[in-house]
């Protein structure tokens, strides 16, 4: 098991209501998992907790059997080696595409960095755009740069927060396939959250359906789509 989340409790500051209560989730190595749910279901919070951007009140998170969080430990986001693709991509606007991609590649020789950059640019087919700034490339290109920037640090897994929500509807289908292609090529374990069933069906091997902080159903994508366990899950996949 690559990621293990056990008995996790979490609520945001200034709120008495728990977003997650006794939350449990396991993610296997190599899986592409979609956490599917409506807004307010707690799906992005799960991602932020795995990345170390939020501190849980209780519970354990392990990655590759190493404890990231328990009663006595908290590993900081910069020490977790987890790649994150943010909803708004968060590309640093004052850095070029190349500088953005190599931002997390530190303490390495110049030759290695250049070689890594070439590999990653080739992976996303943007070799020509390395000196452009984020605002000089399209939304789809920005997303690919943000993805390989997260991949550049050789992470254990990659987390993606609503990766397609910022794209035009007519672009989404093509970009989904591109993203899936890149993830499959690298073989990296991926977890992404979405409210859109098409994202889940097109990309994920497994789906976790979340409602009000509780997992309603989880399993292989085909099984979830063909055998929804409740009206709510069936409603999510109704076209």
């Amino acid at each position: 098991m690559l990621v293990q989340i056990k008995d996790l409790d979490f609520r945001y500051k200034n709120s008495d209501e728990y977003v997650l209560k006794n939350f449990n989730l396991d993610i296997e190595k190599g899986d592409i998992v979609c956490i599917l749910g409506e807004s307010g279901s707690g799906k992005s919070t799960v991602l932020r907790l795995i990345a170390g951007l939020e501190v849980p009140h209780k519970g354990i998170i392990k990655i590759d059997d190493e404890v990231m969080v328990n009663e006595s430990t908290f590993v900081y986001p910069e020490e977790r080696e987890i790649g994150v693709l943010f909803q708004d991509y968060a590309l640093f606007p004052h850095m070029t595409v190349a500088e953005n991609i190599l931002f997390g590649v530190r303490n390495k020789e110049k030759g290695y960095k250049e070689q890594r950059l070439q590999e990653l640019l080739k992976l996303i087919g943007l070799e020509e755009l390395r000196e452009r700034y984020p605002h000089q490339i399209s939304g789809g290109q920005q997303q690919r740069v943000a993805l390989v920037r997260a991949l550049a640090i050789d992470p254990w897994l990659i987390l993606m927060d609503e990766p397609f929500s910022n794209l035009d509807a007519n672009l989404q289908s093509r970009i989904r396939q591109e993203l899936k292609g890149i993830i499959k090529k690298t073989g990296i374990t991926s977890v992404f959250v979405s409210h859109d069933k098409d994202d889940a069906i097109d990309i994920a091997d497994k789906i976790v359906v979340l409602k009000d902080g509780d997992i309603i159903q989880q399993g292989v994508t085909e099984n979830i789509v063909s055998k929804p366990s409740s009206k709510y899950v069936a409603g999510l996949f109704a076209s």
């Binding site: 990345a51 951007l53 910069e78 080696e81 994150v84 640093f92 931002f103 997390g104 640090i153």
Partner: peptide, 19 residues
Amino acid sequence: SFFEASRTLGVGITETFFK
């Protein structure tokens, strides 16, 4: 999100501030 992105890329608070 830029601050968080930088930290998930392995860069600490102070270095993130300057870069």
